[in-house]
């Protein structure tokens, strides 16, 4: 086993609420990811996935717990930690009035690359993501797929060893979806550590090596598929999830195998993928 590049230990985030009490959005989560591994953080909406990923990316300050990215403590050496991380969500926007080339150049400079390095990296990414046809058009006029490719290129600009992706395929069409999934797989194969959050379980099952099942701010299951199957005594991810959350009985009643479970906001579509 290689040394983990991402180490999260007892991560907790407490938000005050207007009613005066506290909400523990994330409650003592620990996991680690090795280079080349794709770690799937799975759970329904509001489980704490986004909050966890935002803390890892340095966007939120945790209430307690430690995080190390590429050997840097996220709280003490925030900038170094951020430098070894690429961040992508389906909702991240682009600067409408810049072209992808200008945008990538901008983020390259923010990361601290020098001009020749930016140029080289830009050309690599344009070729790899097939962006040549639109790299000099304003982002405002790009199609969703072109936008998401630009976004991927932005996250990869500094060639970070760690990628954090929060619902990267949420609301994308089938074609764009495919681009993103291919990219995740390819980057994993290149040896990057990838943390992926999603509530599409089929996607996760096809991609991830390791899983963290999160429910109400806590990790209810962790490990590879085999370990989870063993722990829950079920075969498919959705069943495992429901079993581990203790929501087995009343939610499953009357729902056929492989159906969707709206109550938990988990989608597990039948053959043919989502529309």
């Amino acid at each position: 086993m290689t040394k983990p590049i991402v180490e999260i230990c007892e991560l907790t985030k407490v938000f005050p609420t207007t009613e005066g009490d506290e909400k523990r959005a994330v409650d003592g989560i620990s996991f680690s990811v090795e280079p080349g591994q794709i770690f799937g953080l799975l759970g329904p909406n509001g489980a704490g996935k986004t909050t966890t990923l935002r803390m890892i990316s340095g966007l939120l300050t945790p209430t307690s717990g430690t995080m190390h990215l590429n050997g840097h403590d996220v709280r003490a050496r925030r900038l170094e930690a951020k430098r070894s991380l690429g961040y992508l969500t389906a909702s991240t926007g682009l600067y409408q009035r810049l072209t992808p080339r200008e945008l990538l150049h901008y983020f390259g400079e923010l990361i601290g690359l020098d001009k020749p390095a930016i140029k080289k990296r830009l050309e690599e990414l344009v070729e790899w993501l097939d962006m040549a046809s639109f790299v000099d058009l304003r982002c405002g006029g790009l199609s969703t797929g072109q936008k998401q490719r630009t976004n991927i290129a932005r996250a990869l600009m500094g060639d970070p060893p760690i990628l954090v992706m929060d619902e990267p395929t949420l609301g994308l069409d089938v074609l764009t979806n495919r681009v993103v999934l291919d990219f995740i797989r390819a980057e994993g194969a290149k040896g990057k550590a990838i943390i992926l959050s999603t509530h599409y379980l089929d996607e996760a099952e096809a991609l991830c090596h390791q899983y963290g099942l999160i429910h109400e701010g806590r990790l209810v299951g962790r490990g590879d598929l085999a370990a989870l199957q063993e722990k829950a005594g079920r075969r498919r991810l959705s069943e495992i999830f429901l079993a581990l959350c203790g929501q087995d009985e009343h939610v499953l009643a009357g729902v056929p195998e492989g159906g969707s479970n709206r109550a938990l906001g988990m989608e597990y579509p039948k053959e043919g993928g989502r529309s």
Binding site: S57, G58, L59, L79, E80, K82, R83, L85, Y87, T89, S91, T92, G93, L94, Y95, Q96, F107, L110, I111, G112, R154
Partner: peptide, 14 residues
């Protein structure tokens, strides 16, 4: 509003 603030906030710039 356009969702670019997040990308700026994750970049390693104070």
């Amino acid at each position: 509003e356009r969702g670019t603030l997040e990308t700026l906030a994750v970049s390693p710039v104070p």
